[in-house]
Amino acid sequence: MKLLGLIGETLDYSFSEKYFTEKFKKEDIEGFDYKLFEIPNIESFPELLETNPNFAGINVTIPYKNDIIPYLKSLDESAQKIGAVNVIKFTDQGLVGYNSDYYGFRNSVTKWIGENLSNITDALVLGTGGASKAVRVALTDMGINVKMVSRDPQKADYTYKALKENPELVATHTLIVNTTPLGTAPNELDKVDLPYEALTSKHYLYDVVYNPEITAFMQEGLRKGGKAKNGYEMLVLQAEKSWEIWLDGQTPVAPQSETT
């Protein structure tokens, strides 16, 4: 049995195990098992590998998308460009890091906004973690001017305080992407501190959080007549991309039992 899994600090919110378990059952895929592995720090990663020698692939989530890189043999072009890893493939040459968040976000947001995407010139990306890096690169590749937002002025173009003091910045950036975990159940009332009064009906609010279905951040955009989308589709797309990376064109088959 080949083992696939997700590593992160806290995983009780994750959809991955349920998603892949249902995928394997629905598509009659045998020989694979998907499990969640909470590790207290990235230094625990080598021990996890030693304990589970049948690993074939790993997903990486908060807060290890950046910290995992020194433990990998090499990076795919996508991960190199973004500077964050959320997929690990086990190869004969060692562990290789990939980024499927880029693929998931870009395809999701393009499908959602459609032809109106040409009207969006400026975007704000809230947060500076691993997911934000993939979102920034995807939007930049789409020809959109991106400004990063963080509490730390050293990590971003704007701080949340600066946006509160200059609400016109929110008004002129008609695509706003939340890549922070704020608003995730059970803390549904939490949201990034923005001057939401500056939102208009022309705004698109994309939240990488998917539980609840409509986050407090999304509600602010909808209340102003704008459009809002959660991150579930992005998760599904990046998960399927992960599977494609792990499988690499091979047909999944169950290990054959020995006969006597």
Rank of each mutant, 00 (worst) to 15 (best):
H203S: 05
N99P: 11
L189T: 15
V137G: 04
T172C: 12
A134V: 04
S100H: 11
V177K: 08
N145I: 09
G83E: 05
S78W: 01
T140D: 13
M142H: 05
T174E: 13
S78P: 05
D207L: 00
N166K: 13
V208W: 01
G83A: 09
S132H: 02
E115D: 14
L117R: 12
N116C: 07
E165S: 13
M148E: 12
V125S: 03
S100K: 10
Y158C: 02
V149L: 05
W112I: 07
L163D: 04
A79V: 10
L117Y: 11
L169D: 04
I120A: 01
D157L: 04
K89P: 11
V146L: 04
N86Y: 01
V135I: 13
I176E: 00
G83F: 02
T159Y: 01
T110I: 12
T174S: 11
V149P: 02
L194I: 06
H203K: 08
M148Y: 07
R136S: 12
N178E: 01
T184H: 00
N99V: 03
K147I: 06
A185Y: 15
I88E: 10
Y160C: 05
S150C: 04
E168Q: 13
D122K: 15
S108P: 08
G114D: 07
V170Q: 09
H203C: 05
L205V: 06
T172S: 15
S150Q: 03
E165Y: 09
A198V: 09
D152A: 06
R151V: 11
N178A: 01
L117D: 08
I82K: 00
V109C: 03
P181W: 05
